[in-house]
Design a binder for these strands. Structure first.
Lengths: 216, 216
DNA sequence: CAGCATCCGCTTTGATACTG
DNA sequence: CAGTATCAAAGCGGATGCTG
């Protein structure tokens, strides 16, 4: 990308991560940790493969990403954020927060990936009864289950959980609305959400009040 | 800009503010408040005028910017951030922080504007002796003076201050280094910084420790 | 298959000139 | 002052092909 040529910290940042796709690549690496090229393509539907390769090279040059040539047993290249790259987390969090109001029900042509939602969920939810016994909630909303582990704080992992205490199934918006306490259980049910297990756990979690679209 | 088509808050944000120049336009309006078209052009050296016009229209459509047709006595259009636009501040702050390490001495082809630096300064500095009498420091580093008003907190304004207690002149990097406490007064002097007035005020201000380039 | 590189048509950007 | 209009250059998207 052509530099803005401004002696300004914001412009300098955008000189590095302001290109199309670049911050989304950082998002992938931030949410998923080390990724293979193929994992990245999967998490960035629609990116042209040459662009992905080029962006990765640029990010490597600029010290945001490292390329790890894994030894024989794995035999694949792993891309990873450098510490400097990890420092972009506050920027990603800021964009996540700001973008939440746009998260109305996904249209049919929109890609949905569980790990994209996992980041937002982890940022937004808290364990309101941190002294109670650990418990887990499994969400069925994307391409794979999302597991919320409650144990003083809310820890989010992907993939099927071992015997969750509560399972929630439905489309993204009302499920998120239910989790955030913006939608009552009855209203969520009307919008196709299924709750099975220890529903009391819903009162245990919650987020700061915010006017997100998921409530609408 | 073509939408990323992802059901992800970050991608949704970038669908709105991810275009080239867009966040810098938001920066201008955030730092300067209401701006005329010409003010924006001035704060965005290098932008093509058709692009500025197009971006402003898009931002207006998306509810980030409003256009105020001022009445006759002023007879000019004022662009302003909406409340939703103001909510981008955390994103701008995140980018400011992340970009600071890139702020080595500006090259000759880089534009320098005082108000770009003012935002970073206000974010980084604090009044460490909030109970002392109010005082002011004037910096001569950009296209216009920057005044730091110390009164429990550090308030930054542009334009010449009325009889500042301390005046600092020099090139941006060492002046910022001096302010942040990363550079001792002697070292700053060696790098061309002039300090005149109540130099004790330098101990009154300071920022959180951070490895910024201005120290180098 | 993973990790690219190349080619080509389309869109976006940049530079400049011009206008109410 | 606040924009349009125009056009060349750069960037992007999509398809395809190559290499270990």
């Amino acid at each position: 990308m052509r530099s803005y040529g401004e002696y300004c910290a914001i412009a300098k940042s955008l000189d590095v991560v302001g290109d199309r796709w670049t911050l989304l690549i950082v998002r992938e690496l931030s949410l998923q940790g080390g990724c293979r090229y193929t994992d990245l393509r999967n998490g960035l539907p629609g990116i042209a493969t040459n662009l992905l390769a080029e962006r990765l090279r640029e990010l490597e040059d600029k010290g945001v990403v490292t390329r790890e040539e894994a030894p024989p047993p794995i035999a694949t290249t792993l891309f990873r954020l450098t510490p400097r790259g990890e420092e972009l987390k506050p920027v990603l969090d800021g964009l996540t927060r700001w973008g939440l109001p746009f998260m109305t029900e996904p249209t049919t042509d929109e890609a949905v990936r569980s790990h994209w939602l996992a980041g937002a969920i982890e940022m937004l939810l808290e364990d309101r009864k941190p002294k109670e016994a650990p418990a887990s909630i499994e969400l069925q909303i994307g391409d794979q289950p999302i597991v919320l582990n409650l144990a003083g704080r809310v820890d989010v992992t992907l993939g099927p959980g071992a015997d969750p205490d509560l399972t929630i199934t439905g489309s993204p918006t009302p499920v998120l609305g239910l989790l955030l306490g913006l939608l009552r259980r009855g209203d969520a049910k009307k919008r196709g959400v299924t709750v099975s297990g220890d529903a009391a756990l819903l009162d245990r979690i919650g987020g700061e009040p915010m006017p997100v679209a998921v409530s609408g």
